[in-house]
Computed example of a mutant assay.
Amino acid sequence: MLKKTNPFNITKAVDLSTEEIESLWIDVAGGDADAVFKPTSPMPLLILGGKGSGKTHWMRYYSFPLQLFRFHNRNVRPLKGLRDDGYIGIYILLGGLNFERFRGRGQPDEVWRGLFEYYFELWLTQEIVQTLCSINSADSGLAKYEPIICAEIQKLFSDPPAALLLRFKELLEWCASLQRDLDYDINNVLYTGRFTTRIRATRGTLIFGIPRLLSEIVEEFSDLTFSYQLDELENITEGAMADFG
C-alpha cells in the first residue's frame, strides 16, 4: 500500500525541505510569477501578508538551494543556470537574529548600532560564502576563481586575517569565528562592562562589495543580480529599521 505524506503535518514553510518547497509550489500568477516577484530587479520589494499567506514559501522558492535543485533536475551546470536565471537568491531568516540583544546593559545606543551593523554584515557574508561553497562543490568551473575571490573578499575587511585564506571553507570559518567572538562579547557585556570586539568592516562594505567583486571576477556573474531575501523582517523593530536601514 502506497503511503502518502500529509502536506498539513508541517504548517510552516520554513520547516519544509527543498524538495517539498518545489513540489508544493503553485504559480498563482498564471505562469508569470517572475513578473510579480522580480528576482532580477534592482528595486527592493516588500511582500506583505498575514501568517500562512505564503511569503516564506515564495522567498524560499527563489532562493539558491531551490535554484540548485532545479539545475540538478535539468542537468544544468550551476554557473550556467545562474547566468540563465539572471539572479542568485540569498535567503535569510531574520527570526534568529534577536535584535533585542543589541540594546541596553549600560552601553550607549551608538555602540550597539555599530555592533549590530557589523554583526549583520558578518551574517550575510557567511550566507554568501556558504553559497559559493555549494556552487564550488557542484560546478568545477568556479574552482579556478576561488583563490582570487577569497583574497579580494579579505581586502574588504579593514583588519584582514594575519594569514591569507585561499579556500571558501577557510574564509567561512574565519567569518564564523568573528561572529562567535562578537556573540561572546554581547552575552557577557553586562558582567564585563566593555566590549573587546574590533569592528573590521563598515556598513555595506561586505554585503554590497562582495557581489560587486564577484561580478568583476567571475564571467558568469557579470550581469547577475544578488537578490537578498530577508524573511520575518518584522522581527527587527521599526526603530531599528530606521536606525540601520
Score class of each variant (00 low, 15 high):
123 W>L: 15
130 Q>S: 11
140 S>R: 15
95 G>F: 01
102 F>Q: 10
170 E>R: 10
91 Y>L: 04
133 C>F: 00
158 S>C: 06
132 L>I: 03
186 I>L: 13
140 S>D: 12
190 L>Q: 11
161 P>Q: 04
95 G>P: 03
122 L>G: 09
170 E>T: 04
163 A>S: 14
125 T>V: 05
131 T>C: 14
165 L>D: 03
119 Y>M: 10
164 L>W: 00
145 Y>K: 07
178 L>I: 01
170 E>D: 15
91 Y>T: 01
141 G>I: 01
181 D>T: 10
164 L>V: 11
147 P>S: 07
173 E>N: 12
181 D>W: 00
90 I>D: 07
137 S>M: 07
179 Q>N: 09
178 L>P: 01
113 R>W: 00
115 L>Y: 10
179 Q>A: 14
190 L>N: 11
95 G>M: 05
187 N>Q: 13
154 Q>V: 02
107 Q>N: 05
112 W>V: 06
87 Y>I: 02
120 F>K: 11
98 N>K: 15
182 L>E: 04
96 G>T: 09
155 K>E: 13
106 G>L: 08
139 D>S: 10
117 E>P: 01
108 P>L: 06
112 W>Y: 09
190 L>M: 06
177 S>L: 12
107 Q>G: 02
121 E>F: 05
97 L>N: 05
139 D>G: 05
178 L>Q: 13
119 Y>W: 11
97 L>T: 11
178 L>H: 03
153 I>M: 12
174 W>E: 12
184 Y>W: 09
86 G>S: 09
161 P>C: 05
116 F>H: 08
98 N>V: 05
104 G>Y: 04
153 I>E: 09
119 Y>G: 06
157 F>V: 01
111 V>C: 05
94 L>I: 06
173 E>S: 14
106 G>E: 08
140 S>I: 02
